[in-house]
Amino acid sequence: KELSESYPSNVGFKNGLAISYQYLGNTQSSLGNLEQALQFFEKYNSLERELYEAYPSNVGFKNGLAVSYLYLGQTEEKLNNIANAKKYYLQGQKLYQELVKDFPTYHNFRQNLQWVENHLKTLA
């Protein structure tokens, strides 16, 4: 966090901080601390959104943003905030639809799109 704040134009530091928030969110979620996990995932999402908006042609940042929406959706779902969960899942779905369109042979994008589409059906 200190490196990212000291060097705000360094994309690597900002991306590293985003990944750190993702791991902290995963840890808190696995410990059952869902409110704390949600806070870390919101920070992860915010940084991924900043990175993607600054570098929209960077596939890794677009995928990172999509993943962050899925984590937010899963956490909101565990907290029984289904409306918020759907909102986040739909945002992730939109990004994965674009990624699959642009990279049709990349299995991971197609797999994540299929997961979120199937999961949205269970929440309907």
Rank of each mutant, 00 (worst) to 15 (best):
K62C: 06
Q22H: 09
A83R: 05
E50L: 06
W115T: 05
R110Y: 09
V67G: 02
N84S: 15
K43N: 13
V100M: 04
N112R: 13
F109D: 00
L123D: 08
S4N: 08
Q22I: 03
L113K: 04
G73K: 02
N118G: 11
A85V: 13
A124T: 08
H119Y: 06
G64V: 08
F13P: 00
K1M: 07
N112E: 07
G92C: 08
L38I: 12
E53Y: 12
S57N: 12
N108I: 14
L31T: 12
L99D: 00
Q22T: 05
Y21F: 10
E77R: 15
L79M: 13
L17I: 10
S4F: 10
S68W: 00
L17R: 02
T105M: 01
L113I: 10
E77H: 10
N80G: 09
S30D: 15
T75P: 04
L113N: 01
E2L: 15
K1E: 14
H107R: 10
E117F: 11
F40L: 04
E5A: 15
Y71T: 07
N26D: 12
L31E: 14
Y88A: 06
K94E: 09
Y69T: 09
Q39M: 14
F41C: 00
F13M: 03
N15T: 08
T75K: 01
Q111W: 06
L79E: 12
Q74R: 13
S30I: 14
A18Q: 02
L95Y: 12
A54W: 09
A83N: 10
E76P: 04
E48H: 10
V116P: 00
Y21I: 01
Y89F: 11
Y23V: 04
K121V: 11
L113E: 02
A83L: 11
E77M: 05
L79R: 10
Q36W: 07
Q22C: 07
L17M: 07
Y55R: 09
Y44I: 02
G16P: 00
E50F: 08
K86G: 11
N15V: 03
E53N: 08
S9H: 13
N108E: 12
K94M: 08
K94T: 14
N118L: 12
Q36S: 08
S30M: 15
Q111H: 05
N58R: 05
Q36C: 07
K14P: 00
F109N: 00
P8R: 06
G16E: 02
P56V: 01
D102N: 15
V59I: 15
K1W: 14
Q28Y: 15
N81A: 14
N33A: 02
Y21H: 03
E53V: 10
G16Y: 02
